[in-house]
């Protein structure tokens, strides 16, 4: 068992070591602090943080509904929400384009009525990232809601607390670690988003060119810059995932 586990760990560790081995350490700092890299990093942080915030705002009520109510067609709703986890992100981008481009009814209406254009805009990049990151949040929080001891909620309700008070004062504190874990997972996934973003929001410097897009572009011009940016993404993501510790990934 230990041997097999070691092979698995090596399978994940070797590509990272390969990246480290290829990196040119003497110019790493210069690559990471170039104006293009800093711009992509800033945009990435803005977009993935916004996406994570949207996941909390929209994902929390949905998780609660999925975990606590007998809403009809629940398996279908859950399937729909989890779909972006297994869907190729490019397909997600094409679907977003079909729904929100200026030529789609909804996108056209948004543009004509509010002057809003989502494609090729930073909000569009945030939308694409939210689309792929939301399942990670919902899965984590719904799992926590299901596995928590619901008798606390019952007691609070019996003592006269309203549904919302129960949620705010009892449920939320109990599942807080999972909310944090879900948010961080969603944030990390949003940070790495590529396919849906380039398809839906394009690849515009300072507007939609996040770190993964910058890596892809740099691969063709300057491999060392691409590797430097890849390492940066890797360090950020690994830090987030390690900081999640077992405690937070276990059901509340």
């Amino acid at each position: 068992m230990l041997g097999a586990a070691a092979v698995t760990v090596a399978f994940f560790a070797l590509p990272l070591l390969g990246l480290l081995e290829r990196a040119d350490w003497s110019r790493l700092w210069a690559d990471l602090t170039s104006p293009e890299a800093l711009e992509a990093l800033r945009l990435s942080l803005v977009c993935s943080s916004s996406a994570a915030a949207l996941c909390v705002v929209f994902g929390t009520p949905l998780s609660w509904v999925l975990a606590r109510t007998a809403v009809p067609a629940r398996p279908l709703i859950r399937g729909l929400v989890l779909l972006p986890m297994v869907l190729p992100p490019v397909v997600g981008g094409v679907a977003l384009l079909a729904a929100f481009s200026l030529r789609s009814p909804l996108g056209g209406w948004l543009h004509d009525t509010f002057g809003v254009q989502l494609t090729f805009s930073t909000p569009g990049a945030v939308m694409a990232e939210t689309f792929v990151a939301l399942p990670f949040y919902v899965l984590t929080v719904e799992g926590a809601l299901r596995s928590m001891d619901q008798r606390y909620e019952d007691v609070a309700a019996v003592l006269g607390a309203s549904r919302f008070t129960v949620f705010r004062r009892v449920t939320l504190p109990l599942i807080a670690p999972s909310v944090v874990a879900g948010t961080l997972l969603a944030w990390a996934r949003a940070l790495g988003e590529f396919g849906a973003t380039i398809t839906f929001a394009g690849n515009i410097a300072g507007r939609t060119r996040t770190l993964p897009l910058a890596v892809y572009l740099a691969l063709e011009s300057d491999q060392q810059a691409a590797i430097a940016l890849s390492l940066l993404l890797l360090v950020i993501a690994l830090t987030v995932l390690v900081s999640l510790r077992d405690r937070w990934l276990r059901p509340a």
Binding site: G202, N203, A205, G206, L217
Partner: peptide, 23 residues
Amino acid sequence: PESRVTRGPNAGATLNAVSQGDA
């Protein structure tokens, strides 16, 4: 200005940004 240029990874994607997308 580069802030208004979307860069396609290849010729096909570049055309698609106009034909399918909103460029």
